[in-house]
């Protein structure tokens, strides 16, 4: 593996690591922390769900590109 390829591998791992850290942090928040909107369905009104969707789309984009 060349130096350039190994630094790229480190960079890729760190990028994923950042998103995973954010997603894991959001998942560990207590349920009450999410401030659910009572007017919306159980999952769709939960901000933790949308935060995971946002981070998940990002991880998928970095995997695809």
């Amino acid at each position: 593996m060349t130096l350039a390829a190994s630094t790229l591998a480190v960079g890729t791992a760190l990028f994923f690591g950042l998103y995973l850290a954010v997603a894991l942090f959001v998942l560990t928040l207590p349920r009450a922390e999410a401030q659910r909107d009572p007017a919306r369905p159980r999952i769709l009104g939960d901000l933790r769900f949308w935060a995971i969707v946002s981070a998940g789309i990002q991880i998928a984009i970095y995997l695809l590109l």
Binding site: F15, A51, S54, A55, Q58, Y62, L65
Partner: peptide, 21 residues
């Protein structure tokens, strides 16, 4: 190239989520 997309993706989304919570 598309490396500039990082300014909106990794450059905004994690910080916005952390800011929110």
């Amino acid at each position: 190239g598309i490396v500039l997309a990082n300014f909106d993706w990794i450059g905004c989304i994690p910080a916005m989520l952390i800011c929110a919570f």
